[in-house]
Amino acid sequence: MDDERTSQNTSKSQGTGGQASATSPSLLLMRDFVSDWSPLHDASIHGRLLTLKKLISQGSDVNLVTTDQVSPLHEACLGGHAACASVLLKHGAKVNGVTVDWHTPLFSACVSGSVACLNLLLQHGASLHPPCDLASPIHEAAKRGHVQCVEILASHGVNIDHNIKHLGTPLYVACENQQVNCARKLLESGANVNSGKGLESPLHAAARSCSAELVTLLIDFGADIWAKNAKSKRPMELVPPGSPLGRLFLQKEGPLSLMHLCRLSIRRCFGHKQHQKITGLLLPDELKRFLLHV
């Protein structure tokens, strides 16, 4: 699909003349009809910095959008080209521009997993909160396993438990897609271990995917193994009884140890950003590591 779009757009950019000035008939035509593609979009998605600078110096509009409202900044972030994104922002690109699919440049950066683009956008005032639940940056980063993006968004105060009806919470999305490291980072950042998608908990998603690593992680962080989904099924009822994962659930059925209960209680008191707060406590390192699940 991308190859087809690139092929179509290349022919369009040839037709408009990549070196046109701001007042040329071809560029005016693009502005009148909102071209599907422009030389500026092409340079941005492919990271062609010198070409991008030249086009801007010749008067190309950095906020020119396609029929789908995709800007060059969207494309630069989707391609993970921070240098191009920086130039576009320097020349007035809209940091919170929205496409017809409700994608912002921040969302595009989370798709590509570009930490550099993400930091750059946040420095220029990008909104952490999506204009529509159809495109949430934190959910996209969790889905794709971009741990650093999740960490950066969490450190900037994103709603770590943002619950979207058709997606659930970021933690649920991470478990559904078997992104163990993202799930761990979300839990370390204070995500509610039992908040999922409707009555479906993250543990249900982990059990359905048959991931023993995820199941163990969630239970260690206090997941309720007795929670029932909309079909009145507990997580352990979603796995074959005689399977290794089934046996793991049976081992976890008993009451939690006093040490584990204390750890969960302390972490619950700290709420969000508990990882940073626990690190700063005047406690022995061994106790800190226990509280941090290290």
Rank of each mutant, 00 (worst) to 15 (best):
C182W: 03
H139G: 05
Q148R: 15
H162E: 09
L134S: 13
T169G: 07
N181A: 15
H146V: 02
V180N: 04
Q179I: 01
H146T: 02
H129Q: 13
C149G: 13
V158K: 00
C175Y: 01
A174R: 00
I164F: 10
A154Q: 03
V150W: 00
A142Q: 04
N177I: 06
E151H: 12
Q179N: 10
H156F: 11
V150R: 00
K165N: 14
D161Y: 04
L134K: 14
P131N: 13
R144Y: 11
L134W: 12
E140F: 02
C132H: 15
N159Y: 08
V147I: 12
H162G: 07
K143S: 04
E140S: 08
I138S: 02
S155G: 06
L153E: 02
S155L: 11
Y172E: 03
Q179V: 01
A174N: 02
G157Y: 07
A142H: 02
P137H: 11
Y172V: 01
P131E: 12
H129W: 12
A154I: 01
V180Y: 08
V158N: 01
A183P: 00
A154H: 01
H162W: 10
A174G: 02
D161E: 10
C132E: 13
N181P: 05
V180L: 11
V180W: 08
V158T: 09
C149N: 14
C175T: 01
G145E: 07
P130R: 08
V173G: 08
I160W: 06
A154P: 08
C182L: 10
A142S: 13
N159D: 15
P137T: 09
